[in-house]
């Protein structure tokens, strides 16, 4: 599978199989193409010479809206203007809007799902703050709550540890673990933070220059990085 930005290939000949219920790390330096791979799974960039299947359904065309509703996506740092008229609560509700459907209002079940997700992430008390006023870690928790509120079959997280401090990284590790174990949720976590991935994942796939170099057991990642540096 290939992805191009203009004429430049951002992903070259990628082939990857993720098992149901797996907690997979995707490791690579900046510009390796990790975010592009996530965007390709979401159908946000066109894929050439190949295809991506989620539970056997291709991530293109008329399948997309349906498929996207089943994917929880926690994006890379958003840089939301602090004055944006959107509260943390609204952000979590938005995760469910596509599923609720056009011209329909959220029901009590949807409100309950949002409250539960915020509660689980420990940020229910921030629900009525403007999203742009929250710290990096708080935003990250709200975005994770947003992804979970829609009860996804697949969770994609892009650089969840950028712009948060080490304490939050520790909390985040256990939060993701909890979520993954509670529902055997297939999870792909993208990061250039090797210790974080080594802690969190079962298997880690290495990316560089738009290609996949191979995969290894998470516990071997730090040894691999050590060898790469020397």
């Amino acid at each position: 599978m290939w992805v191009f930005y203009g004429k430049t290939p951002a992903l070259r000949n990628i082939s990857l199989r993720v098992r149901q219920g797996e907690l997979l790390g995707l490791f690579g330096h900046n510009g390796a193409g990790k975010s592009t791979l996530i965007r390709a799974i979401l159908g946000l960039v066109p894929v050439r010479q190949g295809q991506i299947l989620v539970n056997g359904v291709p991530c293109t065309g008329s399948y997309l809206p349906q498929l996207r509703q089943q994917i929880g996506y926690v994006p890379q740092m958003l840089n939301i203007d602090p004055r944006t008229p959107v509260r943390a609560w609204d952000v979590v509700m938005m995760g469910q809007y596509a599923r609720i459907g056009l011209l329909r209002f959220p029901s009590r079940t949807h409100h309950q799902a949002a409250a539960d997700a915020l509660q689980k992430m420990g940020v229910l008390h921030l629900a009525h703050k403007p999203f742009g006023h929250l710290s990096g870690g708080e935003q990250q928790r709200v975005l994770l709550a947003r992804a979970l509120a829609s009860a996804p079959h697949l969770l994609l997280m892009d650089e969840p540890t950028s712009s948060v401090d080490w304490q939050f990284v520790r909390d985040l590790t256990s939060l993701i673990r909890q979520v993954h174990q509670a529902s055997n949720l297939t999870t792909i976590v993208v990061s250039h933070d090797a210790p974080f991935l080594a802690q969190l994942c079962d298997r880690v796939v290495l990316m560089e220059g738009g290609s996949i170099l191979g995969d290894l057991q998470a516990r071997d990642l730090l040894t691999y990085i050590g060898r790469e540096l020397t």
Partner: peptide, 23 residues
């Protein structure tokens, strides 16, 4: 009024709205 929730999601972040399956 009819598309209030979709509009709000797009105001927040267009790509994220798109990625969640909204038009």
């Amino acid at each position: 009024a009819l598309f209030f929730k979709e509009i709000q999601a797009v105001i927040f972040h267009r790509e994220l709205a798109s990625a969640s399956g909204l038009p």
